Computed example of a mutant assay.
Amino acid sequence: MEAVQSEVLPYEKNYLRHGTALTTSLAALDATWDEARSALLGTGPDAVRAREAAAMTAHARWMYASALARTESRGMARRLDFPDQDPAQRHRIITGGLDEVWTRPEPVAALLEAAS
């Protein structure tokens, strides 16, 4: 969990984002995931702690992959390398995967249709 926290808690890594730093953090988190796949085992209370660590690692990887996929600043998501909004990116970023993280845009039209 310390490895994940060292990538997601520092203000300069998670709020003032830059593609280079995001890529570096995602690589560190990918390495953490690779190590965790075989090392996070346990029984009883240790199993809960292992699952928490796995969930934190997976979430952090999804978060940074999504941040890299959005090459603009929007809302509270600030990219130092892309300081402006891009009207062409008015969509959500959907993410998933465990061993291989993926992202894809979900157009606003699909969101509006689903809401009606």
Score class of each variant (00 low, 15 high):
L80P: 01
H91C: 15
M63N: 00
W62G: 05
R74Q: 10
D99T: 10
F82H: 13
D99Y: 07
G75W: 02
A31P: 02
A39Q: 10
H91F: 13
V8N: 03
M56I: 00
D81E: 11
E52S: 01
L16E: 10
R104A: 15
A54R: 00
A115Y: 08
S25H: 09
M76W: 09
A69C: 05
T103C: 12
L16D: 05
A88Q: 09
A21D: 14
L112I: 06
G97R: 07
A27D: 05
A60H: 07
H18E: 08
G44N: 07
V101C: 04
E106A: 13
A114T: 01
A54S: 01
V8K: 01
A53F: 04
A47W: 00
E52I: 07
N14A: 14
D81Y: 10
A110I: 12
L9D: 08
Y11C: 11
P83D: 01
A50Q: 02
G96K: 02
H59N: 10
D81P: 01
P45R: 03
R17P: 10
W102R: 15
R70K: 08
R104S: 12
A69W: 02
A69Y: 06
R79E: 13
R49C: 12
A109G: 10
A31G: 14
R51M: 15
R17G: 07
G19T: 03
E113Q: 12
S66W: 06
A58W: 08
H59T: 13
R49K: 13
D81A: 11
Y64S: 09
W62S: 00
L112Q: 03
R92E: 13
W33D: 07
T23F: 12
H91I: 10
D34C: 06
R90S: 10
P87L: 04
G44C: 05
A65H: 07
T24V: 14
L41Y: 01
E2T: 13
R37E: 06
I94Y: 02
A65E: 02
W102D: 11
T95H: 04
W33C: 06
I94F: 02
A65W: 00
E100A: 11
A47T: 05
A39F: 03
R51K: 12
I94A: 11
L80T: 00
G75H: 01
V48L: 09
D99I: 06
P83A: 07
E72S: 00
E12G: 13
D81N: 11
H18F: 04
A58R: 08
V4D: 14
R74D: 09
D30K: 11
L111Y: 01
L68V: 06
T103I: 08
R37V: 14
A67T: 03
H18Q: 10
S116W: 11
Q89H: 07
D46I: 01
A39N: 00
E7N: 09
R90G: 12
A21T: 14
E106K: 12
R104T: 15
L16A: 10
S25A: 15
R70I: 07
E100W: 05
T43S: 14
